[in-house]
């Protein structure tokens, strides 16, 4: 006959083993979920003493080819060129988030933004500044190729810059300091784009 205290000890140990097994399984599942989730490459925001401000980003969506303004709050430098560069970098880094509707690879995309007095404003256009955006070749190398996807990137940049810098009337692109024909084989980068509100919601074909 097994003494009572030994039976209690035995069942207590069994219960402990079962609890530990359940805890281990739960831990394994959590670790698996963490590893299976796409990595968020967004760098942690550097500590800053400057105050944040509301900025409008024109966000593209590949599924319906729309561009929608969205307000975000973050710190930006005050010097205009550095401000424009930081703004476009922030916009493009948004597209590298796992839930992006217009997925692009992360990493530095813009070398410089120059804000110049437009020497040749279009006939009938109001005088203003010309923004020259110098993109990095590595950004182009990793950009998806296609008319719509490239056009959405260009229009997203134009709309965001236009909202933050209303004095900019025209936008040009360079790549590694040189004129370049296309973004990734399609969208024209030799064209001087008018700086406008690029909000877009394509309408379906109409049958009249």
């Amino acid at each position: 006959m097994i003494p009572r205290y030994q039976r209690i000890l035995f069942w207590s140990l069994v219960a402990g083993i079962l609890l530990m097994a359940a805890f281990l399984l739960h831990g394994c599942e959590q670790a698996h979920k963490r590893l299976a989730t796409p990595n968020d490459p967004t760098p942690i925001a550097a500590p800053t003493s400057s105050s944040t401000e509301d900025v409008t980003l024109y966000l593209a969506n590949d599924a319906d080819a729309s561009i929608t303004p969205a307000t975000e709050s973050f710190a930006l430098p005050q010097e205009p060129s550095a401000r424009a560069r930081a703004l476009i970098e922030h916009l493009l880094s948004t597209y590298s988030l796992p839930a992006s509707a217009h997925p692009l690879q992360g990493g530095a995309a813009v070398d410089d933004v120059f804000l110049l007095t437009d020497p040749q404003p279009a006939i009938g256009a109001r005088p203003g500044q010309l923004a020259v955006i110098n993109l990095r070749g590595s950004f182009l190398d990793n950009h998806p190729s296609g008319i719509q996807v490239e056009t959405l990137t260009v229009q997203s940049i134009i709309g965001t810059l236009h909202a933050a810098f209303p004095q900019v009337t025209a936008i040009r692109f360079l790549v590694d300091g040189q004129p370049h024909d296309t973004l990734a084989g399609h969208a024209d980068l030799l064209h001087t784009y008018p700086a406008t509100d690029t909000t877009a919601k394509p309408i379906p074909p109409s049958g009249n």
Binding site: D64, A65, I147, Q148, T151, D181, T182, H186, A187, D188, H191, Y193, A200, P202, I203, P204, P205
Partner: peptide
């Protein structure tokens, strides 16, 4: 989707 683009 019908859209517009600057394209050569």
């Amino acid at each position: 989707i019908l859209s517009r683009s600057s394209l050569r």
